[in-house]
Each structure stands twice: as C-alpha cells, then as structure tokens.
Simulated assay, not measured.
Amino acid sequence: SQMLIMYSHDIFRSMGILMVLFGLLTIGKMLAIFAYAWVIMRPMDKLINFTHLYYNAKSSIDRLNEILKLDSEPKYEMKVDPFKDRKSASIRLKDVSFSYDGSTEVLKNISLEIKEGEKVAIIGETGSGKSTLAQILIGLYPIDSGEIFYNGIEIKEIGYMSVRENVGFVIQSPLMFNNSLRFNLTLGRKYSDEKIYEALKIAQLYEFVSGLDKKLDTIVGKNGTKLSGGQKQRLSIARVLLDNPKVIIFDESTSSLDNETEDRLLEALNSFVEGKTIITIAHRKNSIEKADRIIDLSKIV
C-alpha cells in the first residue's frame, strides 16, 4: 500500500507537469490538484491498511475458532492416589480400543499387564499402534472403550493430572522452547544446579553443556535449532529424569544417537531406573535387549 501511495504521487506530479506544459492546466490548478491528491491519498492508505489487517485477523480468528471447536479432554477428579508411598506402579490394560476417526481402530481389544518395577520393550510393525498406546497411557488420547489401571486403580479414579505427574514420557522428537537450556530442562520448576547437572551426566550431556560459554543459560533457538537431533533427545531424557517419575515411557527416544552414545546412556540409566516401571518402544536392538520382557503389539489379542 505504501508503494501504491508513493507511485500515485509521482503519477499525479508527472501528469500535472505535462498538462501545464501543454497548456491544459495553470500552475495554480496543478498545485491545487496536488493538495487534493494528498488529502485523498492518506485516508485511502489507511483504508488499504485496514483491509490488510482485517484479512490477517480473520485468518487468525478462523484458526482460533478451529481450536476452540475441538473437544476438551474428559476431566476426572482424583479419588484415589495409587502412586502415594510407592516407588513405582503396575499397569494393566483391559479390552482397550482406540481409533482416531471413530471408524478405523488402531488398537482393538488390547489387554496386557506390566508388573510394578518391570522393564518392558514394546515392538511391532509400523502402524501397529505403539506410539498411540504410549500416549493413551498418559491420557493424551481418550480411549473408545476398555479400562486402564495403575496399581489396580482405574485411570478415571486417579485423574489425568495425577497420572502425568507420576508417568514420564520421552518422545522421539521433543519440543524445545526458544529459551535457555535451564528452562528447557526445568520448564519453570525450581531445581538446584547440582541436580540438573546430575541429570545431564546420566543423559550424556554434561560435557557438552559444561563446554558452552553460558552453560545452562545458553539459548537453544526456536524448537532447539542450535541443537542436534541427538542432543534434543538427550535433553528430553534429562528433563524427565529431573521429575523422577514412578513410571517412564521411552518412545524411540534414542533413535538419533550413535551406538556408542546410546550404550553409555543406557548404562548410566540403569541405576536411576532401578525399581521403576520402564516401557521402551524401539526397533534398535540396544534399546530392547535389557528388557525383562518383550511385547509384540501386532500379535496381542
């Protein structure tokens, strides 16, 4: 719009000068035209800007309305705390079914049980619902039918908030904020530097962070653009370790690491996860060979 206004003035001036040269206008009339043109162009400029802002705002409002129309997750109040005074938790699924679109079932009548303190690896073909199962366990997707139990208490009796406070979830592509390493590790919670560095040592990030000029105050960039894929995964693992959950779910959380770094990480994790219930979703042999039991999700009925 600014270019239109600028070029309009040039066009008016050029036409006015030409018309004066050809005797079609007097100099006084030409100056009057310039004055009127300036008066007219300013409100036109504001009108064009308003139209531009209106369409931008309309697009934003449309996106917000799409979000507001989405169904809210069910709200369940905590009636029983199955995690209280327990080091870990058992998990049981009974006839669990789930579909994204209401017709095609990703999980159908799945029943399985994981004992308290057991380390389980979940494998299966692509599309068998491994990652979906992990997100169902923490209530990110409400199930269509069936029941989920923690320490024998159904999840509706526990409440999603309590489950998420006690079940850690490490995903393959973790979200990073355009903020410091400290914030991305703590998410605003208060932890001592000693505890943070202890988690970084287990996650095999201590040397990397110690070598940075600003250490924990280093900005990682939008969605962690200043970090490699492996560093983001290890940062996500350290983030979960700080919370010290009763149950930890690893969903392809070491897929971007080389074998040597993964071996060191898994070895360091052993002492930390001792006695905790661990669910590992992976394809790599290193990630599943230390499991107490392997569950092939594509073969579960």
Rank of each mutant, 00 (worst) to 15 (best):
S99C: 07
G117D: 08
F34V: 05
I114V: 12
G117V: 13
L112W: 04
A37P: 03
A32Q: 14
G127P: 10
I122R: 11
I48Y: 05
Y100R: 10
G102W: 13
Y76W: 09
Q135N: 13
E77Y: 02
Y100S: 07
L137F: 12
S90R: 07
R63H: 03
K75P: 00
K69E: 15
K119N: 11
M44F: 06
P74Y: 07
L133H: 04
N49F: 02
S131I: 00
I67C: 05
E73A: 09
D62F: 04
M41S: 06
T126H: 08
D62R: 04
L64E: 02
Y141V: 04
V96F: 06
G139Y: 11
G28N: 06
N109F: 00
K94T: 04
I91S: 01
W38K: 15
K87I: 14
A134Q: 13
K87A: 13
E125D: 15
I27N: 13
K87E: 15
A89S: 15
S88G: 15
I27E: 15
K87G: 15
K115C: 01
S99F: 10
S103L: 08
S97Q: 03
M44C: 02
L137M: 15
I27F: 15
Y76V: 00
K69D: 14
Y100N: 04
N65G: 00
A57F: 06
A35H: 05
M30V: 07
F34I: 07
A121V: 10
S103Y: 12
F34W: 14
G124S: 03
S103C: 07
L47D: 01
L137K: 11
G117A: 11
S60H: 09
S59V: 03
T132H: 03
D95K: 09
R63P: 01
L133G: 05
I33T: 10
G124W: 03
V120G: 06
I123P: 03
S111T: 02
S131H: 03
I48W: 09
K108P: 00
N56Y: 08
E73Y: 05
K29Q: 14
V39Y: 12
I61N: 05
M41K: 01
T51E: 12
V96S: 07
I138N: 14
K87R: 13
F50M: 13
P74F: 07
N56C: 09
S97C: 04
K69Y: 01
I27A: 15
R42S: 13
L68T: 10
E73H: 06
T104F: 10
Y100W: 05
S90W: 12
I138C: 10
K79Q: 12
T126D: 10
I67M: 13
V80R: 09
M41E: 09
S111H: 02
K46F: 08
I122E: 06
K119S: 09
V120M: 06
